[in-house]
């Protein structure tokens, strides 16, 4: 085997070890999430059977007893918890009180729209934030840099729902350029390209609303780290080699400046998912956030529990991807397991 392929083999083995270790940790984290959420919901005052029948105008004692038996609500707490953990690891989160359908089916139906919204918003925030940050750091004294600073301040000061409503008013209501709600128009055909284009048009406003908030933060972080990196010795070396300024900035400086942005984006996945709930509500986007919001109003605990567990899985997977991206960017991390 050649030296370079054995080197590549070692790197792949290291990455494999990292993934295996993180997945091992993930099982314990998911177990902790299940135990905590199950316990908190059961510690909350009120009888689940009464809550379940409340929206239908209440029920007799006999009907309540039947419901308790159907959902094993009279079993001891530890027995209920044990059964729930076993079912959850089989991806069975029970049936929704309201929809009378398996929670896993309901959540999976809404998972794709949420992933589409959150990943688009995050991509816009990272790419847009870094470009603005780099631009601003290269010309820190220029008026355009100060304008960007003010815009960034505005971006993370404005509440997400307000930004969403303002964008709706401007681009949907007044200008009529973009649709105001949902993920697809009722009249759209089944053709792949027609449907995809329709989804993109529906996605622009909610993704911009969610992304703008984080773009503002990432532009500030990129600006600060870029200013530091541009003064570093290795950037001076790159210039002394006679490299074009474009290469110095976008290759030598950026790869170092982007490391903190990736780290912070990884930490913020959970916050972005939470922000998604507000955006999905404002834009009537058929994602997990809206399902969670409606389940909360209806006290549909099986859905809430399932959502929490799946959100935890999304956050764990996103953090794993962040960790791998981090290792890809920075070789000093790559060789640590």
């Amino acid at each position: 085997m050649s030296a370079s392929s054995s080197e590549r083999g070692k790197v792949i083995a290291r990455v494999g070890r990292v993934i295996a270790t993180r997945l091992g940790h993930a099982i314990f984290i998911i177990l902790a999430v299940i135990i905590l959420t199950f316990s908190l919901i059961h510690l909350a005052p009120g009888d689940a059977a009464e809550v379940l029948t409340f929206s239908q105008g209440g029920a007799s004692e006999e009907q309540l007893a039947e419901i308790r038996e159907e959902f094993n609500l009279d079993d001891p707490f530890l027995s209920q918890l044990g059964n729930y953990i076993i079912d959850a690891f089989r991806f069975d989160f029970g049936n929704s009180f309201f929809f009378q359908q398996p929670v896993s089916d309901l959540v999976l139906d809404r998972l794709w729209p949420t992933i589409l919204l959150v990943s688009t918003a995050l991509g816009m925030a990272i790419v847009g934030g870094v470009i603005l940050g780099v631009y601003s750091a290269r010309r820190p004294e220029k008026t355009s840099s100060h304008v960007m600073t003010v815009l960034a301040l505005f971006g993370f000061s404005a509440p997400i729902f307000w930004t969403g409503i303002m964008l709706l008013l401007l681009f949907s209501s007044w200008l009529g350029w973009l649709p105001s709600n949902g993920m697809n128009s009722v009249t759209v055909g089944d053709g792949f390209f027609e449907k995809s284009w329709d989804t993109i048009k529906h996605l622009i406003l909610p993704a911009t609303t969610l992304g703008f908030f984080y773009m503002a933060q990432y532009s500030r972080i990129s600006r600060a780290t870029m200013l530091e990196v541009l003064g570093s010795d290795y950037v001076r070396t790159a210039r002394a080699k006679g490299l074009k300024e474009r290469v110095v900035i976008w290759k030598h400086a950026l790869r170092n400046a982007v490391i903190p942005v990736v780290t912070i984006a990884g930490f913020q996945i959970a916050a972005i998912l939470s922000g998604g709930i507000l955006v999905e509500t404002v834009f009537n986007w058929p994602g997990m956030g809206r399902l969670a919001f409606e389940a909360l109003l209806r006290r549909d605990t099986p859905i809430l529990m399932g959502m929490l567990i799946i959100s935890a899985i999304i956050v764990i997977v996103a953090n794993l991807l962040t960790d791998l991206a981090y290792r890809l960017i920075d070789p000093r991390i790559r060789y640590k397991t």
């Binding site: 570093s232 010795d233 290795y234 070396t237 920075d330 000093r332």
Partner: peptide, 14 residues
């Protein structure tokens, strides 16, 4: 040109 600080004069990510 070569610089005073060899520890920081080379780009750490390449």
């Amino acid at each position: 040109m070569i610089f005073q600080e060899p520890l920081t004069a080379l780009n750490p990510v390449f």
